[in-house]
Design a protein around this nucleic acid. Structure first.
Lengths: 182, 182, 182, 182
DNA sequence: TTTT
DNA sequence: TTTT
C-alpha cells in the first residue's frame, strides 16, 4: 500500500539527535510548513509536523541543518502509541523521513543569521539515506558509527516521559529498537 | 510551501459525516495503510491515519464508501489543537483530503461482503472535489445542500469532547467554521 | 532535490521483461491513468505513462500483473535521450518505479477476465523493492538470479531500434547497464 | 485515479509565457532536477522535466522566476500527441503544474546574479492557483487579463513546429484551447 | 498508440 | 507549542 509524503518547510528548532541502546542514530525535528492560503483574518498559518529520521541520514541531517533551515523532505506517515507515566495511552502521528534536500546554501544561512538572527552553519546538498555530498564543517561531530552509542544530552525540554523515545529526559536514554523503521 | 500526501488504504469504519453550524459537510475517517515491510516478528503492521474531507466531496465520499473500502486519497497534513474539557491542550495531526479514488467496484465490495463480511454498497468511480462520476444508488441520502444542517448521530464512540469537532457526542453538534480548509 | 511521483492506473499491456547484458532484470510497461475531469465533450481521457522497473522488483511486478491490472506505483521522473538508427536524437520521459502496490486480488482479476475478457492470473500483494509477500503461482518462471540472463523474446512490437533499450527487436537484446538507476 | 508529482529543481531558462487564441495564459519551462545519486563515473546527473502552467498561475510564476530559480512544484503527468509538419505523430510527456513554491528570496537571487551570473529579479512567496502573496516588482508586465492575447515573442529556439503549442516559432501563435487542463 |  |  502506498504512503507517501513530501514537505517543504523550516525547522522550528535544531534537530534532536539521540542513539538507541544498540547505537542507532535517530533524529527528531518539527517542520513548520506555511499554508498556501490565508485564514479568514488574512493570516497565513502553518502546520507543525513532527518528523523522525534514522541512521546515517539522521546524523547528516542534524549536522547540516539548524533552527530555521529550509528543507524538502520525503517520507511516510507513521502512527504509534505508548502508555505514559500516568498510564494513559498516547497516540503519535509523525513523518518518517527517507530522503531530504537542503534548500539553503551555507552562505544564505549565514546571511540570514547576520541579518536577523541566530548562528548559521548549514550547507547546501541534496541528501538521501546513503549518499550525501561532500559537506564542509559539520555543526557537531557525531559518534563514529553505531559502536559508540553516546546519547546526546538534551535538557531543554520541560518534563519527560520514560516511555516516549522522544520525550527528552536529559538523563539516561532509552530508545527501543522497536521503533526502528524496519 | 509544499505539503503533499498520497495514501492507499482501507477505511477502518464507515465515514462519520457531520455538518458545521453553517451547513458545511465534513467527513472524518481513519485509513489503515499496511506497511510495505514486516517487523522483527514477521508481522505486517499498519498505520492508522485520521483523515478529514469537506463539502460535496465529503458527501460523495461518505455515500460511496463503507468500512473496509479500498481507496486512494490525496491531501495535505494539517496540525491543530484545542483545549479539552479537563483544560488540557490536545494536539491533532490529520490529513485533509482534496482528491480521492475508489479502488473497488460495486461488485467487488459486495462479493467481499458475501464472502466474509460486512454489508457492502459502494461504487467504483474516481472523484475529486468537484466532479464525481455518475454514481448509482448512494448508501444514504445526504441533506440537499448546506441549508439543512442535520448532523449525523453517532453514538458508537466511547467518550466525547465538546471542543473537538470530531469527538462524536451524538448530541448537539458544534463544528466551528474555523476548521474549514479555507 | 526532490523528484517524486505517485500513480494509480491500469496496465495497457503485459509487462515487457528483459535482461541487461550483465543479467539485470528490467521491466517496461505503460500505465493508463484516467483523468479526474472530463474534456469539453464530456469524455474522460487518460494519460499513458511509460514506466520502468528494475531487478527483483521487475520480476515480481511482471509475474503478478497483466494487461488491465490496477496498480499503484511510486517512483521518480527520468529523462534520457539516445540517437536512433536514422541518426536523430530521441528524447524519453519515463517513470522509474521503486515501489508498487497491486490493487486487485487474484479473484477479482479472474472475475474480470471471465466477465469480459482476457486471461487473468494476478495476485494481491503490496510489494516494494525488497520484500514481496508470499505469492502463489506466478505467471511465468523468471530466470533465477542475474546469473542466467535469458532475455525475454518479444516480437509483438513493429520495428525496432538498436539504441533504445526498450525498442524490442525480438532478436539479440542489448540493454546497457548505463540505464541502471544507480 | 491518482496522478501526483512533486519536484524541486531549477529553471533551465526563463519561463516562456504565451496566450491561447481565447486569451488564456500558458507558461512553459523546463526544470533541472539533480538526482540524489551519482552515476558510475561519480557524476551527479539531472533530469530535465518539461512543465506547463496555466492562467493566472502562469503569469505569477513567469513574473517571479527566471533562469536558475530554485522552485518546488506540484502537478500531474500529462501525455499528449500531435502530428508535426512532416506528418509524423509526436508524443509529449510533461507535468501540468497546479501549485508552486519559490525557494529563493529576492536577495538570494540577486546575490547569485552578482556573484556568478544572470540578472536576478525574483521574490520569495509560496503561490498556488489562486492566492499569491503580495509580490514586489514583477519581472515584466503581463497583459491584463485574457482580453489582450499578446503572445510573447521568442526566437531563441532553433526550429519550430506549427502544431506543437510549445514549439516557439516567434511568429504567429496558435495554441488551441484543447490543451486547457479542463 | 494503449487501460477499466 | 514552534519556522521565515
Amino acid at each position: 500500500m502506498i504512503n507517501r509524503v513530501v514537505l517543504i518547510g523550516r525547522l522550528t528548532r535544531d534537530v534532536e539527535l539521540r542513539y538507541t541502546g544498540s547505537g542507532t542514530a535517530v533524529g527528531q525535528f518539527t517542520l513548520a510548513v506555511n499554508r498556501s492560503f490565508t485564514n479568514r483574518n488574512g493570516e497565513r498559518e502553518a502546520d507543525f509536523i513532527t518528523c523522525v529520521i534514522w541512521r546515517k541520514s539522521a546524523e547528516n541531517f542534524a549536522n547540516f541543518t539548524h533552527k530555521g533551515s529550509l528543507v524538502g523532505i520525503e517520507g511516510r506517515i507513521q502512527t504509534r502509541n505508548y502508555d505514559n507515566a500516568e498510564g494513559q495511552r498516547v497516540y503519535v502521528t509523525e513523518v518518517v523521513v527517507d530522503n531530504f534536500s537542503l534548500l539553503e546554501s551555507r552562505n544564505q544561512g549565514e546571511q540570514r543569521a547576520n541579518q536577523g538572527g541566530y548562528q548559521a552553519n548549514n550547507n547546501s546538498f541534496g541528501g538521501n539515506n546513503s549518499q550525501p555530498q561532500a559537506p564542509t564543517q559539520p555543526r557537531s561531530q557525531a559518534p563514529q558509527g553505531p559502536s559508540n552509542p553516546a546519547p546526546t544530552q538534551n535538557n531543554s525540554q520541560p518534563a519527560s516521559n520514560p516511555n516516549d523515545p522522544f520525550a527528552a529526559n536529559g538523563d539516561s536514554i532509552d530508545i527501543s529498537d522497536d521503533d526502528l523503521p524496519f
